[in-house]
Design a protein around this nucleic acid. Sequence first.
DNA 1: TTGTATGCGTTATCAT
DNA 2: ATGATAACGCATACAA
Lengths: 336, 336
Amino acid sequence: MVTITDIAKICGVSRATVSKALNGAPDVAPKTVKLIREKAKELGYLPNATARALKMGRSYNIGVLFSDKTGGGISHEYFSQILESVKAEAERLGYDITFISKDLGAMQMDYYEHAKYRSCDGVVIASADFADPAIIRLATSEIPTVTLDYSFDSRTSIISDNVRGMETLVRFAYENGHRKLAFIHGEMTSVTQKRMASFKKTCAALGISVPREYVRSAVYHDPRSSGLATRALLELPEKPTCIFYPDDLSFLGGMSELERHGMSIPIDMSVIGYDGIPLSQVLRPRLSTYRQAAERRGQEAARSLIEQIEHPDTWLPQQITVEGELLPGDTVRKLG
Amino acid sequence: MVTITDIAKICGVSRATVSKALNGAPDVAPKTVKLIREKAKELGYLPNATARALKMGRSYNIGVLFSDKTGGGISHEYFSQILESVKAEAERLGYDITFISKDLGAMQMDYYEHAKYRSCDGVVIASADFADPAIIRLATSEIPTVTLDYSFDSRTSIISDNVRGMETLVRFAYENGHRKLAFIHGEMTSVTQKRMASFKKTCAALGISVPREYVRSAVYHDPRSSGLATRALLELPEKPTCIFYPDDLSFLGGMSELERHGMSIPIDMSVIGYDGIPLSQVLRPRLSTYRQAAERRGQEAARSLIEQIEHPDTWLPQQITVEGELLPGDTVRKLG
DNA sequence: TTGTATGCGTTATCAT
DNA sequence: ATGATAACGCATACAA
């Protein structure tokens, strides 16, 4: 391994000078800089991030936290899109990313400890159970953090406009003549609460009454449970004309169930998803859904986290709302 | 930050003793160990991976390389499954993972340099363009590596049984009475070559002749291009009875195209995918495909890489083949 | 403009 | 059984 010491010897200067020259310090003679840079390149010198981190107290490494428990593991398209955009933006700004988890090998540590252990400059918390004490510990620690879809006091968060999103979808169904709307929701997180409240509020504003039995619970990203909820809805004496699903993936469970009943979408039943993952627009008919801009959200998360890391003095916590958009698709039938 | 120096002071011993006690060295008095461990816990001491890495020359950190160019970005379900399983196995063995990419921030480095810069103990190379000089440099360097679906000389690789997989699928179609098989393939990688060769060889063995125009090219994980290929097949005077797609996701493009032509699967056309991602079995009808055990492959990759890192003396390069399995699904019609 | 000295937190060697 | 010391590679305050 080539170190600055090697370069110093060859160039006949001190290590300090090499370090300065390589880092663009102003107080080194131009020709010395040139010589050093040339030799460094020639020898294939590479800075050692580890040593640099130890010395500077900055690792240029940010943690990313995906707790799979919530059904938001990285293999779900929506979250992998977020991961990919966080990664891209972080790398653009010169940071690497490391996954933060519980229990690394034999040592048992919680999220906070893991992040400290790896000297992460900050952590993006995506898809986690925000009631978990371990998450709370991390999010309220001295480590800079950014959370997605949940706000901790005096912390920055990237919030999707769940209220507006759901309102948009309900109005879309309404404008297409639907008055019997069924709502299948995921686990009771704060996101779920917002969407459900917005659903009910918008319905009320439009003069639509939602019977108790039109609201069913399921699990996010789990087609099976949404399939069961769909079946229950189809067994009602008075069926809805449009079903809202917790997310696009969950809709697939409903799709199967509808086909099993010999029903065609949207002729016999209209459906609406949430998320707007690429898959939803590849299906035929295209799913009517609300697109949460995953890339923009991941990018914002990384950007604002690094902003906080690099300018802690001028930084202020904020809730950044990233707006989504309606993807009309073809699964909501126009009712006479 | 609590360091061993703090603990040493409080316990009235030297830093060396603390280090030994914490790492379970045999030459420390049991009661000293007890005292030190207690105080460490009390103070909330955490080892510093950075300092440890610098001193030991081992980072307990492995790189993961997904080059997006190949259309195998992490947001594709198959690759995110691999990522997730690599992560799980690495963590189980006490390693963190870091993404390796080109061009970190302002500094431009190639993959090899990035891995060195972060002191990775090894790298899992998944989904890359193996003709890329930068990949070759990394894979033939002194850094331990494991590749997926491509073998470098004297390196270990995790190979999926593409030959057997394709043979299985062709025979499956044959047994269901199909004799007119069309084949849509992805970009010409070594994997593609193997699958195509196996397709043709198996057809030949079964006495099936494959007209030139039944073989079309598309792009992996790109429904659109497979849709176009499908359209071309449907315009032939003599249509095939069964279409093979490059992968499950690509099939979705074909699905749309078939529906546009008013054709129903599998009544009017049989189709076969590849990969066996969860999505494929959520669709109705269930896709007939070949499941590559992504989790097992990711796990094997991590396991064998760490094996190599920790026991370089007894380690031997090997090609590990992970077998897949036929998922019969319901998209291949039984022909009279 | 350049060099010297020091320390970041840890582990390893060799005395004591 | 314990401790003093050096070293890993780097950046920086300060001296020259």
